[in-house]
Nucleic acid binder design. Structure first.
Lengths: 362, 362
DNA sequence: GTGAAAGCGCTAACAC
DNA sequence: GTGTTAGCGCTTTCAC
């Protein structure tokens, strides 16, 4: 912190001829409670404004044992899904007087663990994290027992604390069922980070849909290793330039993956949806503008952020959480556009609606 | 900050039978400088790990007068351009041991001013801000004289401090020249936030290109009021559903605006590029996948972030900045794809390259 | 090699 | 209504 020219209540006290306590009281809005005279209040305020003095929140934080800061740890801020989450969280935090300390874990467990530790040493009042891995151990280090924490979007298996996700399993299951209804049987699943719970749930939904329809599950059709655009691109290249019989549908478990898949498909001169159908997880502004307009699974991003912050604020307020509401699952919507077609030779008719169909799942 | 079960060096001191000073010295890596015995070091480290004690950075910050935190204020984290900037900045900050405190100013000057004040009171060591307005007054409040600050992407007129932007004027000028070469004369300029310097430079470039080509500048063709998707949509609707003669080309001064324009065009059943050509500011992963692949102006996002952080770190290190390098202008690249066609009846041929042409501007 | 003590800028008893 | 004072948890001079 730069050493400010005029720093502190002490200085203000001298300038106004009052004591630090008094100055402190008016500056922290306790004037009424202490019945400080209007005159005094004015004097302090004016001096503060004139000399550009703002109270030192770090000293305040030390004394008050609160930083009015929440930590936000996400795997990739540049992924529009997380960027959007981050934005809503920042707004909600600010509305309650909290600032947000941001860490991008780069989909890397070590970086994440490091960030958690850092945030703890910086004494953030609470933490919301979209964890990378399937183990949540590093989230609960020794000594961090009742430290306000809520997990978002992804939840390690066996995690018992408060968390909010969308219904990933149900969503991808419904999408795959949609494919099945259109006659598809060879459906690729372009997965994201295999270690992330969201991905696991999505893959599970994919498998369940197949099993329930008595369609054999081919492990080779689940492919990919992270949520990056490149993963979609290379997986599609690999799968569609050789394999036989060629898959007829692709379930992309993330918006960037879908983009990569689209690129590869175009490169391979495969038409969507004529040659292959495609559904993407995550709705984005560009989804209806790409060629063809994409059928997507839309997560309730804003609702997710709100719910997470609710859960966090409840903890901050030391309100015991209703134990039965700790794990919150939000419904996903299937938005049907033009990237899915009935399998050639199947008896289904192609969807021709002008306006997209929205189907709330569950 | 939650009151941690075991807090502080004091506790560790008792546990190890040493003094706080010693414990402090080893925990802050000063063991060597003070010739602390290896045995003692071990003892402290082990105890710290066992009891899960992390030093209280806020107390440390108070004492050291540094928070190892930089503030980042941007107008909209969910805009992919800023999200990307934010990500790079977070990485660069972390690499140097800094955390980042994030504020989203929502393209609102008051929120921005409020955030600056907040960051100052929280004693961030430095600030990087992409300012909303054309006045930079609130960035330099009384008492914040030599407080490390660098402006990013946008610079208020007359601002003298360190800042980095891309060459907005030159970029949009080149884009408009490209339109002109293809025979277009009625070129719409879909602007972003009129008060932002980036927008002003872009509009200026647009005007200059027209003037130099002796094409009359029609003020009615500059339309829009912010960088949102809705602005592109409504402006296009307004302009293309009635005006006569209908414009034949659109310069969109932001990626979301372009998306909105594309939506509206599709809705009006106008084909790109046959009926109207389009160029978008900001390159995005989806740009080559929308229909048609978009010709874009690609800003050097990573380079911008790096440069800004360089400038900031120089200030943090109290290295006097080379005064002639304080205002840094980075070149933009024109990526030609398929959204621009020669005007029907003009004697130009349509660009048919398979791979996009990249033209570095300036 | 290690300890004692002062103080970073603030708040909250406790006085009056 | 306002002032005095004792810390919050850390670093660092000075002592030994």
């Amino acid at each position: 912190m730069a050493s400010l020219p005029q720093d502190g209540l002490k200085h203000l006290a001298e300038a106004t001829g009052l004591s630090v306590s008094t100055v402190s009281r008016v500056l922290s809005g306790k004037a009424a409670a202490y019945r400080i005279s209007t005159d005094t209040q004015e004097r302090v305020m004016r001096a503060a404004r004139q000399q550009g003095i703002v109270v030192n929140e770090v000293a305040r934080g030390l004394r008050l044992r609160t930083t009015q800061t929440i930590g936000l740890i996400i795997p990739d801020v540049s992924n529009p899904f997380f960027a959007s989450l981050a934005r809503h969280i920042e707004h909600l935090a600010r509305a309650k007087g909290y600032s947000v300390l941001l860490a991008d874990s780069q989909e890397n467990v070590e970086v994440e663990a490091e960030s958690v530790k850092l945030m703890r040493s910086r004494r953030v009042d609470g933490l919301v994290v979209a964890p990378v891995g399937i183990s949540g151990d590093h989230l609960h280090q020794t000594g961090s027992e009742n430290w306000p924490l809520v997990l978002l979007d992804r939840v390690p298996t066996g995690y018992a604390g408060p968390c909010v996700t969308s219904d990933n399993r149900q969503a991808s299951k419904a999408a795959v069922q949609h494919f099945l209804e259109q006659g598809h049987r060879h459906i690729v699943c372009l997965q994201g980070l295999p270690a992330s719970s969201a991905n696991q749930q999505r893959v599970l939904g994919y498998q369940q849909a197949l099993q329930e329809a008595r369609v054999p599950v081919n492990a080779k059709l689940v492919i990919g290793h992270d949520y990056a655009i490149e993963t979609g691109r290379s997986a599609v290249h690999e799968l569609f330039s050789q394999s036989n019989p060629r898959p007829t549908a692709i379930m992309a478990l993330g918006n960037l993956i879908a983009l990569g898949a689209l690129q590869a498909l175009r490169h391979l001169k495969l038409k969507v949806p004529d040659d292959v159908s495609l559904i993407s997880f995550d709705e984005q502004p560009w989804a209806e503008l790409v060629d063809p307009p994409l059928t997507t699974l839309s997560q309730p991003v804003e609702k997710m952020a709100e719910t997470a912050m609710d859960l966090l604020f409840q903890q901050l307020a030391r309100t015991p959480l209703n134990s039965h509401k700790q794990e919150i699952l939000l419904p996903v919507t299937l938005i049907q556009r033009a990237s899915v077609a009935p399998l050639a030779g199947s008896n289904r008719i192609r969807l021709t609606e002008r306006t997209p169909l929205r189907k709330r799942l569950r």
